[in-house]
Nucleic acid binder design. Structure first.
Length: 564
RNA sequence: UGGGGGAUCGUCUAGCGGUAGGACGCCGGCCUUUGGAGCCGGCUACCUAGGUUCGAUUCCUAGUCCCCCAGCCA
């Protein structure tokens, strides 16, 4: 897939215009600022594609990776590593510009001292509960804390002692002195620093004083010379605070915050909190569970970075809340995999076929096309013999209307092989269940070699009993039985989890060429969908994940039919 | 009843005063040794009401609805 410039949107317009006008000296410096307290998901991919895509498309543009690690209680190096892996896998490069807010702690502290000197910040002794009471409500102004008038020297002294570890968690905070009556609650003297006697995964025990997001983020942006600081909508009313911090700190560079709507998808969860909950409660099998919209999950499921990027380019960037249909994501992975994945035959729910007129001891190697979309993919041999398996769905003893597949007395083509005709079935005398389908094959109809133009309504896939390889195939359905937006907040959202989101098919049979597979290899199982070899797969037991099904016209027809 | 945002096909999204475009989806059809892929055609939208204007999705006014904000989370 060629790397094209991302689609136009209002943020690209702003950045491009600023770049052209020379507003930031012709620089375009973006940043992707994850907190290392969880794994990346496709919502992050939207942001990554936006920020790194902008850096890629604007001459001289660059995008920093900055870990916003200001809260030692939730962050750890495992996440730092995973986040880097995922960004690289998605195909983006921070070109050595990797930063950590924790590296700025000393500078941030100095800025705070400056703020105190200027009388723009003060140390407060209110408890969290008291502070809430003083803050007022959405409709009522807050009241000044008694500490608000504390002398500058005393503030300086207390702040230094906060740093030195003299006080317990929660006893003192540093607050900005802005306006307790502001209609914007974020401006009612927000907390800039809090005490946390917790070991930080990078700074260890050097600090017990940690800056808050609203303070650390704008200054980190300013320190790095970020020109456009892109974040999601919920930070829109933090922008006045962002600007206030940068203004008061008198940094030489003033970044600009721009907000856009985060990505939501139907029938899945996207919040870090909920994803964490699924993982911790073992409702899924880890961060890379293929049912999750995490990057690791999508990757294990068989999604390609190209498809995810194309998706991100197509959903657009705007300010209105939106829920994108999962079908759109599925469309782009199908489109990508259709072009690049080799075709193979696999039978998920096998039922035995016996070709009564095919010689018992005989077998032959048939020529099969690896990818009709890509002639360079070449051909392969598929073994054929008297006893075969086909998909249970491809046979009906009593076929409904418009069912084109095999049924008593009917003919179908076996893919790459012959036209066969069903001449009877064998049933289990106890259960009445069909155990074998008897067919005859027409040797004159061998695939490719037939001159006659005999038409059959359907071509079905198959494997040869003597040659097939047993496999497990994991089918995935939506994680939720409804759209996340439809779950009432008072309900336990986990009760809306789809109990059948994972279906393990353990009696599958695949063509022998798949013996050579390796983890992560992607295929189209003909007529079924796109699959990839799972991490759990071994040479003793092949395991495949269904990435996405093929579009199934018959399923639609059948569904539309009146019940029989 | 405070503040900040947002409302365009079923779903995303474009449009920047000249009469609504694209993608997904859906519905037909063609084609097909994957009921796949591909191709062709169709479907449905400017939150409401006034106003300005020759002309309004775009500008103005008044409403309506939706989202976010009262963490020492980010």
């Amino acid at each position: 897939m060629s790397e094209q410039a991302g689609a136009s949107n209002f943020i690209r317009d702003i950045v491009a215009a600023d770049h052209t006008s020379g507003k930031h000296g012709g620089r375009a410096v973006m940043r992707f600022p994850p907190e290392p307290n969880g794994y990346l998901h496709i919502g992050h991919a939207k942001s990554i594609c936006l920020n790194f895509g902008l850096a890629r498309d604007i001459p001289g543009g660059i995008c920093h990776l900055r870990f916003d690690d200001t809260n030692p209680t939730t962050e750890n190096p495992e996440y730092v590593q995973a986040i880097q892996d995922d960004i690289r896998w998605l195909g983006f490069d921070w070109k050595g510009k990797i930063f950590f807010t924790s590296d700025y702690f000393e500078q941030l502290y100095d800025f705070a001292v400056r703020l105190i000197h200027k009388g723009e910040a003060y140390v407060d002794h209110l408890t969290a509960e008291e502070m809430r009471a003083y803050r007022g409500t959405l409709t009522q102004p807050g009241e000044n804390s008694p500490s608000r008038s504390r002398a500058i020297d005393e503030n300086l002294d207390l702040f230094q002692r906060m740093r030195s570890g003299e006080f317990a968690d929660g006893t003192y905070v540093l607050r900005a002195k802005i306006d307790m009556a502001s209609a914007n609650i974020n401006l009612r003297d927000p907390v800039l620093y809090r005490i946390r006697h917790t070991t930080h995964y990078r700074t260890g025990n050097k600090w017990c004083l940690y800056p808050a997001y609203d303070y650390a983020h704008p200054l980190s942006d300013a320190i790095e010379g970020i020109t456009h600081s892109i974040c999601t909508l919920e930070f829109e009313d933090h922008r006045p605070l962002y600007d206030w911090v940068v203004e008061q700190a008198e940094t030489p560079h003033r970044p600009q915050q721009i907000e856009f709507a985060r990505l939501n998808l139907t029938s899945t969860v996207m919040s870090k909190r909920k994803l964490l909950e699924l993982v911790e409660k073992k409702l899924v099998n880890g961060w890379d569970d293929p049912r999750l919209p995490s990057i690791k999950g999508l990757r294990r499921r068989g999604y390609t970075p190209e498809a995810i990027r194309t998706f991100c380019d197509h959903i657009g960037v705007a300010k209105r809340d939106a829920i994108v249909e999962m079908q759109l994501l599925e469309h782009f992975i199908r489109e990508d995999l259709n072009k690049r994945s080799p075709r193979v035959m696999a039978v998920l729910r096998p039922i035995k076929i016996i070709l009564d007129n095919y010689p018992d001891a005989q077998s032959e190697e048939l020529e099969a096309v690896n990818n009709p979309e890509d002639p360079s993919a070449g051909m392969r041999k598929v073994p054929f013999s008297r006893i075969l398996y086909i998909e249970q769905d491809d046979f009906r003893e009593d076929p409904p209307k418009q069912f084109f597949r095999l049924a008593p007395g009917r003919e179908v083509r076996l893919r790459y092989a012959y036209i066969i005709k069903c001449v009877g079935v064998t049933k289990d005398p106890q259960t009445g269940e069909i155990t074998e389908i008897h067919c005859t094959y027409d040797p004159t109809t061998k695939s490719g070699a037939s001159q006659e133009q005999r038409k059959v309504k359907a071509t079905i896939h198959w494997v040869s009993e003597a040659h097939a390889v047993k496999a497990e195939v994991r089918l995935y359905s939506p994680l939720l039985v409804t759209d996340p937006a439809k779950i009432p907040p008072e309900h336990d959202w986990t009760s809306y989890l789809n109990p059948n989101s994972l279906e393990r098919m353990t009696n599958c049979l695949v063509e022998p060429s798949l013996r050579q597979t390796a983890h992560g290899m992607r295929y189209q199982f003909e007529r079924l969908g796109y699959f990839c070899t799972d991490l759990d797969s071994t040479s003793d037991l092949l395991i495949f994940n269904r990435t996405v099904s093929l579009k199934d016209a018959w399923a639609k027809v059948e569904k539309a039919q009146p019940a029989r």
